[in-house]
């Protein structure tokens, strides 16, 4: 999917965020157990967001010997990752709910792979900076 198409698709999803009746008018209500599973997935992503945010505060508080700028960069990266996770959790929940109502396949996503790669790189970077003792 090209970038403009992606933006357009996101705009369509976004309309569902603020018009709950639009979601209910799609297809038919799925088995409630599937909806509850979707809700738990949403909550799991929200916990991931909280973990990233907490990690951001932890970097700032528990690595006081680190150079101020480096510390701030890590903190901001983790906080931004948490915010991204929170926004995406809502969007993914809406898309899954709509797909289930329409009887379509669940949406596939590149986000988990990207998040995994990002967290891995960040962890390696933090470990390297701490081991090299890059202090002020």
């Amino acid at each position: 999917m090209s970038f403009p198409d992606r933006v357009r698709a996101f705009a369509v999803d976004l309309r569902l965020w603020f018009a709950p009746e639009r979601l209910r008018s799609e297809g038919s209500t799925p088995d409630y157990r599937f909806s509850l599973a979707n809700e738990r997935t949403f909550l799991a992503w929200l916990r991931t967001a909280f973990a990233l945010i907490g990690g951001g505060f932890a970097v700032d508080q528990f690595l006081p010997s680190l150079h101020q700028t480096v510390r701030t960069v890590f903190t901001v990266a983790l906080l931004a990752g948490g915010a991204l996770c929170a926004v995406r959790s809502v969007n993914h929940w809406v898309r899954c709910e709509r797909a289930m109502r329409r009887g379509e396949d669940l949406p596939s996503s590149r986000f988990p792979a990207l998040l995994g790669a990002g967290v891995g790189l960040l962890a390696v970077a933090i470990a390297a900076v701490v081991l090299l003792g890059w202090t002020r």
Binding site: L16, W17, Y32, V90, V94, E97
Partner: peptide, 13 residues
Amino acid sequence: PRTMGIRTALLAA
């Protein structure tokens, strides 16, 4: 049980 509303999801996020 009824499906979670989008408002609950938006409030939490």
